[in-house]
């Protein structure tokens, strides 16, 4: 089939408009306050003042490490817990299997905003407020992931499992030596998908973390944007710094992410 140059051009122009806010963010991050106030289109020189301000004055690095730590550990936990729970739902036939399945399914109907207050109090009683684990442990509970992986397990042909069973393998062995390698695409998809979701979460860290040093990147950056400290150049530089790792991550794991979205989406 022949490709159309005209269509390409239309899409390209639309795309340029679409990503303009990001380009403007990058350009503005090099401007001085005066250049922003006087509406200069381009900065007069490549000024890294805003960037050095960020690294010197604020806890951006700390927030970045917090976000990385929380997202990585939570994702790790999600994968383990999900794999374990999805296996009986997808593969094992036993009394109560259906019940557990519907119980999990019911979980996706609970919006977190509706339980944010009792959950906050629970974390307080557990002494988890302002702690990494106060974010990490709740993040690990995600019924949606389990349904996705269980569905994937269900689709794996029986031959693989039977061969192992004849050799006398245990359920645990089958799960980690047979099922997990076969389900790698699904697991990769949910881990990337979870990671991005946790990295970007705003409401929950806003509530749980009271100490500025414990903020995640999104909550920390929001303080730059407070109405009494309008330093747009610095804010934009902060945005650029915060977008870079996500951009790299996105470039590497794009396919998994898309799969996670569509699989999750189509199954939802």
């Amino acid at each position: 089939m022949k490709k159309s140059k005209l269509l390409t051009l239309i899409v390209f122009i639309f795309l340029l408009i679409y990503i303009f806010p990001l380009l403007w963010m990058i350009i503005s991050s090099f401007k001085t306050s005066l250049e922003i106030l006087t509406q200069k289109l381009l900065p007069s020189k490549l000024d890294f003042e805003n960037y050095s301000y960020i690294f010197k004055q604020s806890g951006v690095l700390r927030w970045f490490l917090n976000s990385s730590f929380i997202s990585l550990i939570s994702t790790f936990g999600v994968v383990i817990i999900t794999t374990l729970a999805a296996y009986p739902l997808g593969r094992l036939k036993f009394r109560g299997n259906k019940f557990l399945f519907y119980l999990t399914l019911a979980g996706i109907m609970i919006p977190l905003q509706a339980i944010m207050i009792p959950r906050y109090l629970l974390l307080r009683d557990l002494g988890l407020l302002n702690k990494y684990w106060g974010l990490i442990i709740p993040y690990m509970v995600n019924p949606m992931n389990i349904l996705i992986v269980a569905q994937f397990f269900k689709g794996i042909p029986n031959e693989f499992e039977e061969a192992a069973r004849i050799d006398g393998a245990s359920d645990l062995y089958i799960l980690f030596r047979v099922m997990v390698p076969l389900a790698r695409p699904a697991l990769a998809a949910i881990s990337v998908f979870s990671f991005v979701g946790i990295w970007n979460d705003f409401l929950w860290p806003l509530i749980v973390m009271t100490d500025q040093k414990m903020y995640t990147l999104p909550v920390g950056l929001a303080t730059f944007y407070g109405s009494y400290t309008m330093k747009y150049g610095v804010t934009m530089a902060g945005n650029v710094i915060a977008s870079l790792p996500i951009f790299i991550f996105f470039m590497i794991f794009q396919e998994q992410l898309i799969k996670g979205l569509t699989v999750g989406g189509l199954k939802e």
């Binding site: 307080r124 002494g127 407020l129 302002n130 509530i207 009271t210 100490d211």
Partner: peptide, 10 residues
């Protein structure tokens, strides 16, 4: 934040 920290006991 201050009130939340007071509630959290820290």
């Amino acid at each position: 934040k201050l009130l939340a920290a007071m509630l959290a006991g820290n």
